[in-house]
Computed example of a mutant assay.
Amino acid sequence: MQTRPLLAKDLMTRGVLTVPPGMPVNILAQMLTQRGISAVPVVSETGQVLGIVTEADLLRRLASAEDPKKGLLAQILSSQNRQAARYARTHGRTAGDIMTTGVITVEEETSAAHIAHLLEEKGIKRVPVLRQGKLVGLVSRTDLLHAVLDPPPSIKAEAGTEDEQILRAIEDERGRQPWSNGAFVFADVTDGVVRLHGIVRSEEIRRGMCMLAQRIEGVKRVIDEMSVTSGVVMPGL
């Protein structure tokens, strides 16, 4: 059983292949193909991350050949800075020319949950891991699957009979989840079997309530007797 949350240092791929900013693009593309990798960090001589080159950066270079020609008005209205930046990246000759800059990075002690949040929020597939500002690894979406294999811990209940403990734990967890305010739901517990009945306003809240009950330590089974209504549900009414 995992005794602490998984961290970047537990999941990261070590010994990551890196390239200098001056590496020619054609050699870089050949390297990605031969190694079967989809991205490579670009680092300085001192090991600091300057950017990252991905398959998307290389494909953007190829796709630019069929960029539609803009009319005069469109050119005036569009950002010249943006046009110039795209031109430089799609016609660059080195890794430093075409790399994506402003790379999101994490530290070795960053939790897997926070990394997953960053990947989802920023729409990226991987993050470099740093130690004192220098690259020591890379965490990708694939690496995070190892964290998924370690299930969330059960929620422990306080003192009382077992069924009372379960019921109290359900109510305590509901108090920590704002979305459950949209559920007019009651729970009955008998011999570890939780019966949920009442009204919720969406299938998502219904599934959330079932999962909440299932996470409570000692629960043997959850019986869903909830009804979904499209109206606004106000608890306590």
Rank of each mutant, 00 (worst) to 15 (best):
I76W: 07
V43K: 07
G71S: 05
T54A: 14
A85T: 06
I98Q: 05
R82K: 06
G96L: 08
T100R: 04
L73D: 05
Q48T: 15
R89Q: 10
G71C: 00
D67W: 13
I104S: 10
Q75I: 01
S79W: 01
P41C: 10
I37V: 15
V43W: 07
A84Y: 07
R82V: 05
R82Q: 05
A85F: 02
I104H: 08
T46R: 11
Q48V: 15
L62E: 13
T101C: 09
A56W: 06
V42S: 15
M99F: 08
A95C: 04
R82Y: 03
V106A: 07
L73G: 03
V49M: 14
E45T: 05
G71V: 00
V43S: 09
R89Y: 02
I52M: 15
A56Y: 05
L62K: 09
G96F: 09
P41H: 09
R60I: 05
S79L: 01
V42P: 14
Y87G: 01
Q75H: 03
Q75L: 05
L77E: 02
N81Q: 11
R89C: 02
A84R: 10
Y87N: 07
Q75C: 01
I37T: 12
T90K: 03
R82D: 06
T54H: 13
V103F: 11
R60E: 15
R61M: 15
L50H: 11
T90S: 08
R61A: 09
L50Y: 13
S38G: 15
M99E: 09
S79T: 01
I98A: 06
Q83D: 07
L58V: 02
G71P: 00
L59K: 15
A74G: 05
I104R: 13
T46W: 04
A84G: 03
I98Y: 04
R86Y: 03
T54K: 14
A63W: 10
V43P: 08
V106E: 07
V42L: 14
V49Q: 13
G47P: 04
D57W: 12
V53R: 11
T94Y: 04
S38Q: 14
D57K: 14
L62P: 06
R89K: 15
A95V: 03
S78Q: 01
Q83N: 08
R60Q: 14
G47Y: 00
D97Q: 03
R86S: 09
T100Y: 02
L73N: 03
T100M: 03
V40T: 10
R86Q: 08
D57I: 11
E55V: 15
S64K: 10
S64E: 14
G92L: 02
A85V: 06
L62Q: 13
R82G: 03
K70W: 05
L77S: 02
E45D: 12
V103E: 11
H91S: 04
A65W: 09
L73I: 11
Q75S: 04
T100A: 08
T100V: 03
A39M: 15
T90F: 01
R86L: 10
I76P: 00
D57A: 14
P68N: 02
G102K: 08
T54W: 14
S64N: 11
H91N: 13
D97F: 04
D67M: 13
Q48C: 07
P41L: 11
I98P: 06
R82C: 01
L59S: 12
K70A: 12
T100C: 02
E66N: 05
